[in-house]
């Protein structure tokens, strides 16, 4: 089986690699690029721990081959902060106790990042639906919702009225 050359942008940097076509995007990130923020939780595209941004959309990187992402633009949790300055979502998760074991957190952050990019003022229901592809076993989601609202305030968005 032939290896395939791929070229993509990851967190703003161009990356070239030669990979087996069966290599999943999550393994390219974790094992070849050392970006271990995204995790593997279920392997069947249900838990969302592997969520990254691909071409401006949230995707589950355990169910995307790296070759499929070739030519695309990937953003991971490692690219979320602006240098030393945390993204308001990162600050919000810490401030509102939106994480416990931390395993789902990178996926949650990347998902909620895209959620707020697409809809800056989601209602609580919209936040819950928005993160429904991400499973958290620790928090019961309540503080994750609060964390997103915290970030909305930080980002200067008007909080949606309930």
């Amino acid at each position: 089986m032939a290896k395939t050359d791929i070229k993509l942008t990851i967190n703003g940097e161009e990356v070239e690699a030669t990979v087996e076509p069966r290599m999943l995007l999550i393994y390219l990130l974790r094992e070849h690029l050392g970006l271990t923020g995204a995790h593997i939780g279920c392997e069947t595209s249900h838990c969302g721990a592997c969520t990254v941004d691909l071409d401006g959309k949230s995707v589950k990187s355990c169910t995307v081959f790296a070759v499929q992402a070739s030519g695309g633009e990937v953003m991971t949790v490692e690219g979320l902060a602006n240098g030393a300055e945390l993204h308001p979502l990162q600050a919000g998760f810490a401030e509102e106790h939106g994480l416990q074991c931390g395993f789902c957190t990178p996926g949650m952050l990347m998902r909620t990042y895209r959620l707020l990019e697409d809809n800056p003022n989601p209602s609580e229901d919209e936040i819950r639906v928005g993160i429904s592809g991400n499973i958290c076993r620790c928090t019961g989601y309540q503080n994750i919702v609060k964390a997103v609202r915290h970030a909305m305030r930080e980002l200067g968005h008007k909080e949606a009225t309930e």
Partner: peptide, 9 residues
């Protein structure tokens, strides 16, 4: 159908 990420793919 599925969830937001899956619907993107």
């Amino acid at each position: 159908i599925a969830d937001p990420q899956v619907r993107n793919m």
